[in-house]
Simulated scan of single mutants.
Amino acid sequence: MTAPKKSVLFICLGNICRSPISEALFIDLLEKKGERDSWKVDSAAIINMHVGQNPDSRTMKTLQKNGITSYSHKCRQIKTPDFSDFDYIIGMDDENMSDLEGLKPKNCKAKLLMFGDYDTDGSKTYVDDPYYSSDIKAFQDVYDKVSRCCEGLYDSVAM
């Protein structure tokens, strides 16, 4: 008998920066640990502004610069079934968490978690939104933080 897949959904405002980076890095971590087939991993937005689009070009450049070259994603908005289809729904900041609390149905199965709480260096609990930065370094900063958060989350929920 096979164990059921664990599942995680990463959420940010538009699903073009932080949550796709998180999805890509968590998938990469699972592949390195030989556990990709044991997990369902996805990302989504709070708002519907970018639905059907690719992630921000700076997101993709940052992933590629760091060796993640096979990731592809079309932005989507969170849906009510996600709250029962995923074990964990991960928000990036207080606004995401507040929005998720407001959206969750009464029969919510998923645990809503703040991603920054899993940062292995113990820094602030939110993941900054790099979208409005004119410096691509902001995307690398998010990548670095999310990389640590992925390790912390994995260590916390994988067993």
Rank of each mutant, 00 (worst) to 15 (best):
S22K: 01
L113T: 03
M114P: 12
N48Q: 12
I89T: 04
N66W: 06
T69R: 11
L103Q: 09
K40G: 02
Q64F: 03
H50G: 06
I47T: 14
L13K: 14
S123I: 04
A110C: 07
M97H: 08
K111F: 04
N54D: 15
G91I: 06
L112Q: 09
I47N: 13
E95W: 14
L30D: 03
M92N: 06
D37K: 08
D121H: 08
C108W: 09
E95P: 00
K109P: 01
K104Y: 12
T69A: 02
K33C: 03
S22G: 14
Q77A: 06
N96F: 11
S84Y: 02
G122W: 07
P20K: 11
F10A: 03
I89G: 01
K65Y: 05
A24E: 10
I27H: 07
P105S: 12
R58I: 05
M97A: 08
A45V: 07
D93E: 12
K79I: 12
H73K: 14
P105M: 04
D37T: 04
K61C: 07
K104C: 10
I27T: 14
I68Q: 07
N54Y: 11
C17W: 08
E101G: 12
M49D: 13
V41I: 12
S123G: 12
K61S: 13
S38M: 11
H73W: 08
G91M: 10
H50V: 07
N15K: 10
R58T: 08
K124R: 14
K104F: 08
S72Q: 13
K65D: 13
N54H: 13
T125W: 00
A110G: 05
K40S: 10
G14T: 12
D28V: 03
P55I: 06
